[in-house]
Amino acid sequence: MRILYHDLVRKGEEVERGVGTVFYAELDGVLGDADCVVVATPLVGRTLLAEERFVRFKRGGHFANSARGLLGDDEASVQTLDDGRPAGKGMDVHANEPYVHPRLAIHPKVMMMSHNAGSTVDTHIGFEGFLHKGRALTLVNAHLIKPQRTL
């Protein structure tokens, strides 16, 4: 699988080479080239994918949002799904939670799941391990966590 990514901070060349990834300075470039766009970002107060971005999706490309519902405009995604861009959508978050957009709920190109990853036994065990040992089993973005000093 070829990995394309956009981020505010570019990874180092060694990291990119190690996983065979291609960096895009602009999100719109990824949308036009990727077979599947997965949104994994916090919500910073604005919609990331509205109609002007959905129409830039590669013909046949898919969109998956498991981050925050408000990152993708539900009404715009219904309209653009009808036009084939994106070709399908997977989601477990919704813009107006706990309510689900009625047209997305019945759309044949949409796959919905409930957002329950935090409720699994494995997640709870991982949380307990962190609380008791002070270290996560699989730490993502470890470079962002600053060590605490004790007096």
Results as ranks from 00 to 15, higher is better:
residue 124 H to F: 07
residue 150 T to I: 13
residue 129 G to I: 00
residue 119 S to L: 03
residue 140 V to W: 00
residue 128 E to Y: 13
residue 2 R to W: 06
residue 39 V to P: 02
residue 97 E to G: 04
residue 90 G to L: 14
residue 132 H to F: 12
residue 7 D to E: 14
residue 147 P to Y: 04
residue 43 L to Q: 01
residue 55 V to H: 02
residue 83 D to M: 12
residue 9 V to T: 07
residue 86 P to S: 11
residue 139 L to E: 06
residue 24 Y to W: 03
residue 78 V to I: 15
residue 77 S to D: 12
residue 84 G to D: 14
residue 8 L to D: 03
residue 60 G to L: 04
residue 49 L to W: 03
residue 119 S to C: 01
residue 139 L to P: 06
residue 95 A to Y: 07
residue 15 V to W: 10
residue 131 L to F: 14
residue 140 V to H: 10
residue 65 N to E: 01
residue 151 L to D: 08
residue 113 M to R: 13
residue 65 N to M: 03
residue 41 T to C: 09
residue 138 T to L: 14
residue 52 E to Y: 01
residue 6 H to S: 01
residue 86 P to Q: 01
residue 78 V to R: 10
residue 19 V to T: 07
residue 93 V to N: 08
residue 116 N to P: 02
residue 82 D to L: 14
residue 28 D to V: 14
residue 26 E to L: 00
residue 144 L to I: 00
residue 16 E to D: 11
residue 13 E to P: 13
residue 146 K to T: 12
residue 53 R to D: 15
residue 1 M to H: 10
residue 142 A to N: 02
residue 37 V to P: 08
residue 80 T to Y: 04
residue 137 L to D: 06
residue 109 K to M: 03
residue 103 R to P: 07
residue 121 V to F: 11
residue 94 H to S: 11
residue 6 H to F: 07
residue 78 V to E: 15
residue 15 V to C: 03
residue 97 E to N: 12
residue 14 E to S: 10
residue 143 H to C: 00
residue 39 V to M: 01
residue 146 K to V: 07
residue 27 L to W: 08
residue 45 G to N: 05
residue 19 V to P: 02
residue 121 V to P: 04
residue 74 D to R: 05
residue 120 T to L: 00
residue 8 L to T: 02
residue 1 M to L: 11
residue 72 G to A: 06
residue 30 V to W: 12
residue 81 L to F: 10
residue 108 P to N: 10
residue 103 R to T: 05
residue 91 M to D: 01
residue 95 A to F: 11
residue 66 S to V: 11
residue 14 E to Q: 12
residue 39 V to S: 00
residue 65 N to T: 05
residue 91 M to K: 12
residue 103 R to Q: 14
residue 32 G to Y: 05
residue 23 F to H: 08
residue 58 K to E: 02
residue 4 L to E: 05
residue 13 E to K: 15
residue 42 P to A: 13
residue 44 V to G: 04
residue 113 M to Q: 08
residue 120 T to D: 01
residue 94 H to F: 11
residue 89 K to R: 14
residue 103 R to A: 06
residue 56 R to H: 03
residue 92 D to L: 09
residue 135 R to P: 00
residue 147 P to L: 15
residue 29 G to R: 09
residue 43 L to W: 09
residue 146 K to G: 01
residue 11 K to I: 13
residue 56 R to E: 00
residue 86 P to L: 01
residue 70 L to C: 01
residue 102 P to Y: 09
residue 150 T to C: 12
residue 104 L to C: 13
residue 67 A to R: 09
residue 18 G to Q: 15
residue 135 R to D: 01
residue 73 D to E: 07
residue 43 L to N: 03
residue 41 T to W: 05
residue 74 D to K: 06
residue 73 D to K: 14
residue 10 R to D: 03
residue 14 E to R: 10
residue 96 N to M: 00
residue 57 F to L: 09
residue 74 D to N: 09
residue 42 P to I: 08
residue 64 A to C: 10
residue 108 P to G: 10
residue 76 A to Q: 06
residue 105 A to I: 06
residue 39 V to I: 15
residue 60 G to M: 13
residue 115 H to G: 04
residue 106 I to Q: 11
residue 128 E to W: 15
residue 53 R to I: 08
residue 59 R to M: 07
residue 110 V to D: 00
